[in-house]
Design a protein around this nucleic acid. Structure first.
Length: 216
DNA sequence: GCCCAGGTGGGTA
DNA sequence: TACCCACATGGG
């Protein structure tokens, strides 16, 4: 399994080149994106983020200063805007109250503990927590998402109904805990899946053939 | 018009 | 623990 994961990573990297990822300018912007992208196409997240960025600086204080209704309007294109607005403000309030708005401080400390703290916040599930840890805090916590499941299922490494924890453990147990590796690996999986995984039947029109990792 | 997208939480059995 | 459903917009 370890060899298969590493082999996949190397093949993806060879094709796409090194990717350094999460489209955001600041760590707090990563957090906002992590909430907004929940079950949402990234295109819609971009629309919402652009509007939000135009209206306010992307800081926890600025988010808290907005009325919830105004925030809802601004992030509307990302969908689920009522719950996302509420959860963004709850997160921001927590960050301000407990850490004076210092995200780096909030995310420092033993990784498992910080992860548990994140998971206790409303609207932060395992994927959102790992996104924040990996892409906002630069900490080695592997992100499992729909793309990861899809690609690994295509490769026959998963049946597809494994739990988040099981899939994450697969990576955490077999790969060295390096931020750059986790970052690049997840980014490569997403880029690969954007191209091939939604095509049916399997990869028939995949532009990467015959290099497509799913066909090797 | 229909289906899906870089999930999460709450309710029920 | 294991399902089921609500949450909502925009693009193919």
């Amino acid at each position: 399994m370890k060899e298969k994961l590493l082999s996949l990573c190397h093949r993806l990297a060879a094709h796409f080149g090194p990717l350094h990822w999460w489209p955001a300018d600041t760590p707090f912007e990563v957090v906002i994106g992590a909430f907004l992208t929940q079950n949402t196409a990234w295109r819609n997240v971009e629309l919402a983020m652009a509007g939000l960025k135009q209206a306010i600086p992307l800081t926890p204080q600025a988010l808290c200063d907005l009325s919830t209704q105004r925030l809802e309007e601004l992030i509307r294109p990302a969908g689920f805007f009522r719950q996302k607005a509420q959860r963004l403000q709850l997160f921001s309030t927590y960050l301000l109250d407990r850490h004076q708005g210092d995200l780096a401080a909030m995310l420092s400390g033993p990784l498992p503990q910080v992860r548990d703290t994140l998971l206790r916040l409303k609207g932060v599930g395992p994927e959102t927590a790992d996104c924040i840890l990996l892409y906002a805090a630069q900490r080695p916590s592997f992100v499992v998402d729909a793309y990861t499941r899809r690609l690994l299922k295509r490769l026959g490494l998963l049946t597809g109904d494994e739990s988040y924890a099981v899939i994450r453990a697969l990576f955490m147990d077999h790969l060295p805990h390096q931020v750059d590796l986790f970052n690049a690996y997840h980014a490569l999986i997403v880029e690969q899946c954007k191209i091939i995984c939604r095509k049916r039947p399997l990869c028939e029109s995949c532009p990467l053939r015959p290099q497509c990792p799913a066909l090797l």
